[in-house]
Design a protein around this nucleic acid. Structure first.
Lengths: 322, 322
DNA sequence: TTCGATAGTGCACATATGAGCATGGATACT
DNA sequence: AGTATCCATGCTCATATGTGCACTATCGAA
């Protein structure tokens, strides 16, 4: 007669079987033979040992947290993939640089894994530069790299759009095409006029054919390259923020709900539209650094991205507030 | 291209696969499908996750310690079984009572599990009384219960040998037979004379046919019922201890090496010999309470037991000193 | 006592996993 | 450049495990 369920000897049997199975790596049949039980009985007792928490199986690596965040982002928002970087939660410019690098590495890894071909559209900014610098030789077989949106010509900080395009192209053997125009101009009319310029138009048309887009998620800080380009004065910047702009995607500012924050300003913005962006099969948005939570959530809601790369605190903000 | 071994993305893959496998309970094939890997690759990565301690599987129940001690006792000394009771390591008479009860319960459980038949030999003492009181109705189909060694007639503490035999018998439907003689007498000649007495001889002969023996392991304390029976005076008791007697098994005192400590005294002892005891297929020795380590080890070395039941501190002592 | 409910048992069969091996692609060394 | 070596890969085949089911022992209530 075997010890009854719930008796002290019963737990001991579960413990013994668990140790034989998980520690000694005996088969259930061997254990059964040794203890005079059928292999079925052993299997069922092992199942009970698991149920009753006599055996604990856990994923203990620190990265487990991050993978968990990724899975929750994918599950909650129906994304294609999510990458959450392991970044100590510090603040300051140095910490932001670290976060950018870590997130950029993940983004570059994912691109290499997916090996997107054809035309790839890219935006610019510090984050995109970090990604460009992490790309390994031969990461893709793409044929052409194209700039998705205008670059500030008068920014105090160089936008480095040239280096970004050049690196994306040189590491992959693709050619590249820049967009020789400001991000945001003074009026919708001027924007429309520029968009009709043949060189600009050709680039935008090429960008429309891209099946992959990679872009950073920006915040409306006073030193944002978009806002500092000279066509958006301080009053307009203040108005933008007061309208609840969470940040920008390829130069276009979104509110927390994922809608364009200020349509009139959007009409003065040069580059692919958000609707066009949202139609790409692979569109990766990258958010690194403090305060990126709102724009990340807005971009997710707008569905302008289906792959997000961000740091831990951004991921947590999004999951908390989304 | 999959992330290279050692790269950060590699660990993340291991973590993700581990979570899908151990937490979500997907099959390796499903995981492979989902991540674009063969099921073999998934299996190998899971193996690596285990090797690299990304996944930890442990038996967490408090009883695991005890089961571990049991396994080590069985393995180290080639026993048939070992039972280690979960007893808080306290000292004092109350603690000893608790330990005795806990060990007795395990011993009774094991007996019920083995269901020994035929003739069962038993010794007496506080430990055996505790075992007798734990026996459940119908624990065995044995036909006869027989006393293995003489009982002190003049002990200050009643030996309760009657109750022990009666309980062993009444819970199993067996009849019982006592041994109406002292444990130790004054001379070998007197011992031999008693052993020739028909009633005593019959009981001993019956005990020789027993295939199962259950007995306590005693220590040579001044209040030991064996020593207090009147035939061993204080000088002899002191001599016994000075000869290094670790304790007794069915009234026969053993040295630390498992040899009979004092052959002349042994020749004055009534009951089964240790060699006869050691030939039984199932012979369970029970040691509960402080200071039982040495006699437990001695009994193991003498092979007079092949099943031991003891408390945690005794088990640890034996493993440390054996 | 008799009956029904319940939980445990062993089985046949389907599925999942592991082991050994041949292959191919990369690396390092000459 | 040529070549030896090392690994990772995916295969086949053997083993191990899980599932659903029919059967039985046990226990409590009528």
């Amino acid at each position: 007669m075997v010890a009854k369920r719930g008796s002290p000897g019963d737990v001991r049997l579960l413990v013994r079987i668990s140790q034989l199975y998980y520690r000694m790596h005996l088969s259930q049949a061997q254990i059964g033979e040794q203890l005079g039980l059928s292999r079925f009985a052993v299997g069922r007792l092992l199942e009970r040992a698991l149920e009753e928490n006599i055996v604990r199986i856990e994923v203990v690596h620190p990265a487990a947290r991050l993978v968990d965040l990724e899975d929750r982002l994918v599950g909650r928002f129906g994304l294609d993939a999510a990458l959450v970087a392991d970044v100590p939660a510090a603040s300051g410019d140095a910490a932001d640089d670290l976060a950018r690098d870590a997130v950029a590495e993940l983004a570059a890894d994912l691109l290499a894994q997916r090996r997107p071909g054809g035309v790839i559209g890219v935006s610019w900014g510090r984050t995109m530069l970090a990604v460009a610098r992490k790309l390994a030789q031969g990461w893709t077989s793409a044929t052409e790299i194209v700039q998705l949106n205008g670059a500030a010509s008068r920014s105090d900080q160089p936008t480095r759009v040239g280096e970004i395009l050049e690196r994306f192209a040189s590491t992959s053997g693709a050619s590249f095409r820049g967009l020789a125009a400001p991000a945001i101009v003074g009026s919708a009319a001027l924007r429309d006029a520029l968009m009709r310029d043949p060189a600009i138009r050709e680039t935008i048309d090429l960008a429309r054919t891209a099946t992959t887009a990679v872009f950073g998620l920006g915040i409306p800080a006073p030193d944002s390259p978009h806002l500092a380009s000279g066509f958006v004065d301080e009053a307009e910047q203040a108005r933008l923020r007061s309208m609840g702009a969470a940040g920008d995607v390829i130069g276009r500012f979104l509110g927390a709900d994922g809608q364009v924050a200020w349509p009139e300003l959007d009409a003065r913005t040069i580059g692919l539209s958000l609707a066009e962006l949202a139609s790409k099969p692979l569109r990766m948005g990258i958010a690194a650094g403090a305060g990126r939570g709102p724009i990340a959530l807005a971009a997710i809601r707008a569905r302008v991205l289906n792959v997000i790369a961000c740091d831990e605190s951004t991921a947590e903000w999004v999951l908390t507030h989304g």
